[in-house]
Amino acid sequence: MTQTLALCDLAAGRCGTIVRIDAGLELGARMRALGLLPGRRVKVIRRSPFRGPIQVRAGQTDLIIRRGEAAAIMLLPCPAEAGCA
């Protein structure tokens, strides 16, 4: 059972492969430069309390992204037991 999920809904410790980014030109360019683009695998490291930002690992880079912006990133979750991301 796999279906796409927004990055903001992915639990801490889980990873996924980006399938689509529904961001504007500007935000999209920034995401791309920071390593968030379709085909890449990302892992949610932690989520900050009080609906604050999410820490995400994309390749060798750790990023912080607000939930609102993370909602634009759709991904296919990896199986729960998939190894390191």
Binding site: E26, L34, P53, Q55, T61, D62, L63, I64, E69
Partner: peptide, 11 residues
Amino acid sequence: NTDPMLMELPP
């Protein structure tokens, strides 16, 4: 504004 909070968390 044009600066969304999307930034790197350096080691």
